[in-house]
Design a protein around this nucleic acid. Structure first.
Ligand SMILES: [Mn+2]
Ligand SMILES: [Mn+2]
Ligand SMILES: [Mn+2]
Ligand SMILES: [Mn+2]
Lengths: 220, 220
DNA sequence: AATTAATTTTAGACAAAACTAAAAAATTGT
DNA sequence: ACAATTTTTTAGTTTTGTCTAAAATTAATT
């Protein structure tokens, strides 16, 4: 597999929405910043290698083989993201570009040992699940606090608004990525939410609640 | 810089012996498992970009610009090797192939943070020096114990004989890569050497002494 | 249903990096 | 010194991945 083939496979997987619907040539071209004609060429090649199912003018879907390739690249991408954040102190919004390169390093031993070194994480810094060696992953849910019912619990994994002002606000209120929160109460009147944090429980406004993503850990 | 260009630059640097003598087309071809004609093509391209000085039939030498590129790749290669050994528990003889890929990842921030995470190492797992950001490095010396005078001190960084038997012997005598040794006495009669180790001093035969490399740390 | 618009594919070209075969230059041995 | 050998370069292809321009197909609108 060349680097370019791997990126196409990954893009097709992402655009297919868990491999359920067929992906349009133009959609791939747009996502990858190439021309539709280039996509057609590549898709033909991937079809030759039976990594995708493709019929002219009908769009494209990953084969089972292709799906496993996609998941192995996604696994590498997300493990590297965890490494960059946990070990090298990158912030969660800087890691994607670098992981885009690291995901193509070819060495099974490397990924196994990296996985172990990171303590077999289940989720990347953006709250997205990390497939295991066989491409199995727990389809986790990432939701805004404002969308959750009372009693929900999850790990804070992202923000909608990444302005300096908002991040400063979070800091002041001792809210950080990686923290576990529980929704204690929702105020009907103004939509504000009371959540439990490390340092006791606090109430956050509806505006804040619509800007914080929780990763709901699907208990196994 | 493409991956291929980077590998050529690095190879030319290594073959030029600290950039002192001009490198033959055939030597590059042999080292890189390509044909001489391919090398000529690439060398012309590198010359266009003024990364090398090249005149037909005269061999090639890195320009100052090229030398700095070479050193930045070597820096990355060796830092990744340290990471693989120190953090991921690879053994020192497994890391080269993987580092050969990792050295091409493009991100200054990544290398800075990796360097910090590793504690700013000066030397890679094979005892080779790690250039700093500006391409400066202490030209360190790697020598067999049998070649050292009494009083020499250094870090054990490699073996000549990597047979299981020899490695087992080292293990039994509590000699490991990364240990610091000092030459205490050399026996004229049989060439055996007394060295100080973690666990006191031991005498090793001439045969052992000709199979262990020490990295002599050039005090600055 | 027919025309128009959008999407997708084909045809032909190009740059990067490799190759083979043959020509040119440098080196070596007598 | 000059023929033989080795090294290096040139010329012409190939593969991979991209592009533009034009043709084919499908989708949307009157
Ligand atoms: Mn990528
Ligand atoms: Mn991610
Ligand atoms: Mn390399
Ligand atoms: Mn090394």
């Amino acid at each position: 597999m060349t680097l370019s083939e791997e990126d196409y496979i990954k893009t097709i997987y992402h655009l297919s929405d868990f491999n359920s619907k067929s992906v349009a040539t133009n959609a791939i071209a747009e996502q990858m910043n190439t021309k539709p004609s280039s996509v057609t060429d590549m898709v033909k090649k991937l079809s030759e290698k039976s990594l995708v199912n493709y019929k002219k003018y009908q769009g494209v879907l990953l084969s089972e083989k292709g799906r496993l390739v996609a998941l192995s690249i996604i696994r590498k991408h997300r493990l590297w993201e965890v490494f960059l954040v946990d070990k090298l102190n990158f912030s969660w919004d800087e890691v994607h570009v670098v992981a885009e390169q690291l995901e193509h390093i070819k060495s099974d031993a490397l990924i196994d040992k990296l996985d172990a070194h990171l303590g077999y994480p289940k989720v990347d810094p953006h709250g997205d699940p990390i497939p295991n060696k066989d491409g199995v992953f727990t389809k986790s849910v990432k939701k805004l606090i404002s969308e959750l019912p009372v009693g929900s619990q999850g790990v804070c994994v992202g923000v909608n608004d990444s302005s300096a002002a908002f991040l400063k606000f979070l800091d002041k209120n001792k809210i950080a990525l990686g923290d576990t929160f529980k929704v204690l109460e929702i105020e009907e009147f103004d939509g504000s939410v009371t959540i439990s944090t490390r340092s006791g429980s606090i109430r956050i406004s509806k505006q804040i609640a619509t800007n914080l993503f929780l990763e709901i850990v699907d208990e196994e």
